[in-house]
Design a protein around this nucleic acid. Sequence first.
DNA 1: ACAATATGGGTGTAGACAGCATGTC
DNA 2: CTACACCCATATTGT
Length: 655
Amino acid sequence: MRSGHQKGVMHVRDLPLPAPVLDHYESLGIEELYPPQAEAVEAGVVDGDRVVAAIPTASGKTLVAELAMLTADGPGLYICPLRALAREKYESFSALPGVSVGISTGDYDSPADELADHDIVVATSEKVDSAIRNGADWVSDLACVVVDEVHLLGAEGRGPTLEVTLANLQRRAPGVQIVALSATVDNPEDIADWLDADLVESTWRPVDLRTGVYADGSVEFNDGTDLSVGVGEGEDGEIPDGEDDETEATVALVDDAVNGVGGQCLAFVRSRREAEALAQRLAHERLGSEEADAVADDLTAVDDTTTGQRLADCVRDGVAFHHAGLRSTHRAVVETAFRNRKLAVICATPTLAAGVNVPARRVVVRDQQRYTGSQMEYLPVLEVHQMCGRAGRPHLDPYGEAVLVGDESSKAELDERYVDADPEAVESKLRDRNALRTHVLSIVATGFADSRETVLDVLGATFYAHRTPVAELSGIVDTVITELVGMEMLTDSGSGTLAATDLGAQVSKQYVAPETGARIVAGLRRAVEMRDESVTGLTVLQLVADTPDMQDTYLGNRERAAMYQFARAHDAEFTVGMNDAEEFERWLETVKTARILHEWTEGESMETIVENYRIGPGDLESRVERTEWLLGAADALATLLDLDVPEVGRVRSRL
DNA sequence: ACAATATGGGTGTAGACAGCATGTC
DNA sequence: CTACACCCATATTGT
């Protein structure tokens, strides 16, 4: 786009920044702006202008964000999609001299009354949405909003939240400077148009990246270079018959990267189990060190789970695995150790592709397809590109290498689909009924609208509306309004005036889905009827487990019979019994979730639960976290409707 | 006779945001 | 409509 008119090199010291900040950058060795950064400055990032920058990760996005917020005439907000990313940015912004930084995420929060006093606030998009719903006034004082990973606008579920939040933010703080940072996508101009911003588009990276497909012992990179890899030239010198080709190719590629050029390597596979299996296979290559031993000790200090133990064992040999079944502390230890070069390899599921910064010399994408219930599907191009984009460590590598593992028959397809292909376009997912139900409720509850017309008017400021006439939403909006009225969350005066009921307002503030709110209310009412002894901890846990805001827990065939027995034995305790369950299988899963949580509140150890129910420590952790949240919402709704179910508070305190 | 290996059926499969009020090192 | 790695039980083959 603008790369044609670079006017030589731009220097940091020429930017309108406070002297201490300039000194700070200088001490970090940041003197000249990278080309995409210079383009962002030319586009007006430091002049309060709106800019959308579609540039690769690690091409200096953080500095662009800092420049925007530091030069803005008032407080800045930095929005990102993950709590771990929020922490990372909070720490790097905090290093800026004379800048006070706050953070607001679900798990970690600066005190709310201080939030207004910070120069920069870092938050997740849901937290910002929540702040708007709860009428936080610091929102309207913002002079600058930086949105990281704005391409997530296209994500199902969370994308609609982001676009509605950005639409509402502009309503609350008219004329704010918006700087949106996107991965390279097919239609960044649509995002820029929507936000009324200038577009900066670049593929420039501080470290070059070459990408290629491995087939039959060699890789052909897209820069014309080749790499041949001796498969099976490991310690034992030969490939045992029947060994999986792709895994052995991956091992050879990893070995070559680590031993050949002294680099670190990331390997992406499709499932948790395969991530662990590959890590164990690679551990035989003995890539460990004394530093790795220390990391392993940190890991075992966290808990006594077998997962932690297996992880530590691999780590002693310099290899880690990484997936969502790991506890967040385990994940963080692995990420930090890798960044500090104490680990040679991480074998990961796609979690790592979109997470915190973990650059490697080489990235090997062993699996490009994923299980989706009954069939295999190719991963989105954007996701594979994000994995590949982790290749190339600034100041360490002359270039990064990304290798997709294929074979003779798949090579052409992989080249065409990923190496030579552009990523998908970002498309709004706001049309989704569940998303709309949540947001229509919050739009009315916040007072942004009081009729179907004004609801549509508010939605007119979304990304969806920029590409599709909002009128096309009116049918779904009508349906959703009817549903919300039926749930007693909205009232329709008849003359077209909509208002949120106390219940609707509370549901919106608690940030649960309307359906979750409705189910909780129905469950609480039932519990009050049940009165006495049959209401137990299990009752309220199953109640919150059986809402769309709790994730499913897989119920294996082997444990189904035992779970059925358990459910039958405790049937009288459930607000929805087994005979009233709409979908029995799903209901039985909620019983499993509740049973696990119940054991947890009864003081059972994580190790035992994780073994008995075949779930990862991270899965337990995240369910406990959600339960705290949902029980909090249940408590608030019980108070509002005067439904006295003491077990809610009792279980809550035991968590 | 008994162990190593082959065959077959069954199973399970990525990820992760949000409220709120105390208590604690 | 489409996979596939792993686990386990049982069948088959080898010495």
